[in-house]
Each structure stands twice: as C-alpha cells, then as structure tokens.
Amino acid sequence: MRSRPLTRLLTAVLCAVGMLGVAGLSGCTGSTASPASGKITLGFSAWPGWNVWQVAQEQGLFAQNGVEVELKWFDSYTDSLNALATGAIDANSQTLNDTLMSVSGGARQTVVLVNDNSTGNDKIISRDGIAGVADLKGKKVAVEQGTVDHYLLLLALAEAKLSEKDIELVPLVTDAAAAAFVAGRVDAVGAFAPFTTKALERPGSRAIATSAEFPGAIPDHLVVKSDLVKDNPQVVQGVVNTWFATLAWIKDNRDAAVGIMAKRNGVSVEDYKSYDSGTTIFTRQQNIDAFTPGTTPQHLNHQARLASDFLMSTGLAKNTPNLDGLFNDAFVKAVPE
C-alpha cells in the first residue's frame, strides 16, 4: 500500500526542513458561505480510500464547503510524499508509516483526518504450493522495503514464528514486485490494491495474509503542512468538512460514485467493488475514537509507537519520530454532526 524509495523521501525532507512551518494548535471554524482565504493543493494517489477526493472534485463539494482546492493526482505515491515534504503541495493523502518517516527526517506535518484503515486490501500473496506464511521459509518474497506492506510482511512472519532472516527478501517497488510475481520470478509478494488484482492473475495464487488480520496497523490519513494548521485553520476545516460531505453524497449516489472512483484508479467497476471490504472508511465518530489516546490497536498514538519501533529497528529511520503535536483532532470534532 502506497510505496516509495525511502532514501528519496528522506533527502527531500532534509532539504526542505528549513522551509516548513512550526506545528501549532488552533481553534477551528466550520465552512463559510464565501471561500476561505487562500487556494491549497491536495495530493492523492492510487488507493481505494483516497478516491473519495475525486468524487468531491467532480461534484463541486470543495466549493460548497467554502474552500478552493486544486486536487493533484500522482501516478507515483513517492512523488506525492516528496511534494508535501518540500512544500510543493499543502496537503497529501498518505499512510501513518510514511508520515512518521517524514517527521523522523525533520518535516513538520500534522495528521488532521483518518480517511480509512486497510482491512484486507494490503496482502501477502503466494504462488500455488505455499499454503501459509510458515511455508515462506527459504522462499523469495518481493516487497518494497520500508512500506506498510513490508511492515505487514514482518507482522505476518512474526505471527508464524519467523523473521525476515528466514526468507529471501527481493526489494522491488510495488508495481514491479507484482509484475515479478506474475512472471514467476518470486514465490510471494507484498502489495496493495489495485496491484493485488494484478498479482492474483497468476494461476493458483492466493492471499496468505492480509491487513484484516492486523486491525488498525495500516491507517491512512489526510496530512497537512503544520504551518497550514497554524496560519489557515479555516481552510483545513473546510477540507475536512468536504470529506464527510462527500461520504454522504457517495452513500446516496453509490453507483455514480463507484464509477468515478473506478475510472480514477483505472480498474473496472467490478474490480473496484471487490475492494469494498478491504478498505474501511472512517466515520466522524471513528475518527474521534482513533485520535483519542489509548493502548489498543484502534488508537493512533499506539499504532504510531509500534510503527516508529518498526522504522527504527529496520534502520529505515535514523531518528525516533517526534509524536508531540502530530495528531490534531480539532477539525474532525468541529465537523457538523
């Protein structure tokens, strides 16, 4: 799910730190009849939970909620992360792991909304003859290092009483990993939708582990530059309000919405519908519950600690991410019920 070369991301973060704002907490207001001050650019890329933004744009819901937003699609998720880190965009759709990686490098970013949790659309897929994760011992497994699917692989291996040392890890970007698996060059692959659809084209292939087995481990967010929260909270509020307004529109116009989202991801409507159960879109209350500090998988602070440990233990992060001020629930709390 949502992959990128970590060295490129870290370089971009380190180069941009001086340009980024300082995190701050601000009071929030609801949407207004006139546009909030300033146009912002919001990035998103291939993941079922983020296609909601495409619906918002096509239905004019940003304007209805008083904000002027340029929606920017990235064919490469990597590029969207770099764009936020360098200040080329104001907000981005990205995973918790990737946000922590940016913060570890010195970026000032704030999570203001939980879009969804992956509940099955991240998968470890194996060839015929491999019945479970324990059978991966000594096998070639393709995955992009440092991504949430690498994280999922390690969680699944640990549950099977194995470690990364017990497999032959083949580091490839996610689309190339899926292609290598289909071509028979590796025995298994870690991938996210829609690349899981490609991987499962290999005859006899099956998912032997999915994110559904690790609740809360892979949350996806709207992340903004922290100076936007400080300097223009009304814009952030308008974008968050738009998200929930769009979810309401999708509920009332399901077929039209699925058509828009499937087209954006370049898959058939039937394939897109198959992703439904694997991505759990969060309600306002689920957002509030996730932002509330706690010690269970549903709590973001808990998952952030686990993900930070992963980044540090694998050597992907050189500095422990600072979690102070990373999560700001003021905007979801201010959304009209």
Score class of each variant (00 low, 15 high):
A83T: 09
A304L: 06
S277E: 11
Q64G: 10
L10T: 12
R108S: 15
V67T: 08
T292M: 05
D271I: 14
R8F: 05
V13R: 02
E213N: 12
T32G: 14
P35V: 10
N51L: 14
L136S: 10
T11H: 08
T314W: 01
S226C: 12
Q285I: 00
E58G: 04
E68L: 14
M261P: 06
H299I: 06
L154N: 13
V236N: 04
L154H: 03
S313D: 13
T197Q: 12
V236H: 03
S126H: 02
A23N: 03
T210S: 14
S34W: 04
V22L: 13
V258K: 01
V182M: 09
P35H: 09
L6G: 00
T174H: 01
A257P: 03
Y272P: 05
A257D: 04
V189E: 00
P194I: 02
A178W: 05
E58T: 12
V67R: 01
L154W: 00
V114M: 11
P48F: 06
S205R: 01
R4D: 09
S211E: 05
S205V: 05
G21E: 08
E144H: 10
S118H: 08
G24C: 14
G27I: 11
R206I: 08
T78S: 15
G315F: 07
G146V: 12
S126D: 01
T295Y: 03
S163W: 07
V240G: 04
V114A: 08
A317S: 10
I208Y: 04
A248P: 02
D227V: 07
T320V: 09
T7S: 15
C15P: 00
P336T: 11
V148H: 01
G259I: 01
K39D: 06
R264T: 10
I40F: 02
M261Y: 01
L6W: 12
A180I: 08
V186R: 04
A188P: 10
A83Q: 10
Q57G: 00
D135V: 11
L100H: 05
A12V: 03
P215A: 12
K225Q: 15
R264Q: 15
